[in-house]
Amino acid sequence: MIDHRRNRFVCMALGAGLALATGGSGAVAEGVPSTITAESCTTCHGPGGIGSGAIPRLAGEPAADLSAALTGFRDGTRESTIMSRLTGPLTDEDIAGIADYFSSLGAPAQ
């Protein structure tokens, strides 16, 4: 499943261009934009990923750490309560996009 989704990121920029060019009804932009996925993440991880109680902060964390965590949850190599149930469909490109997105949202609280 992951493999056949792997090309989607590559299609993303192209697909967006095509969608914008046609701009009409029925057209759908390809790819999974990290801004949309992030809207689900922040429901638990706090507005902008600032964390909430026992739920960890994402904003401003190093992208490599966020990527490693998400990859570990997806591949079952990292223990979790719930994250392994939420990361199954993510491609490597999805994970990189989400990690960069939250990493860029400001430095973590000291």
């Binding site: 920029a13 790819g31 990290s34 600032i50 949202l105």
Partner: peptide
């Protein structure tokens, strides 16, 4: 619109420091 990683970094990087988009 944020469709690529590069764009995402460009947009949000400009506002570094804010926890919000």
């Amino acid at each position: 619109r944020d469709l690529t990683r590069r764009q995402a970094i460009g947009i949000t990087g400009a506002a570094l420091g804010s926890p919000f988009l």
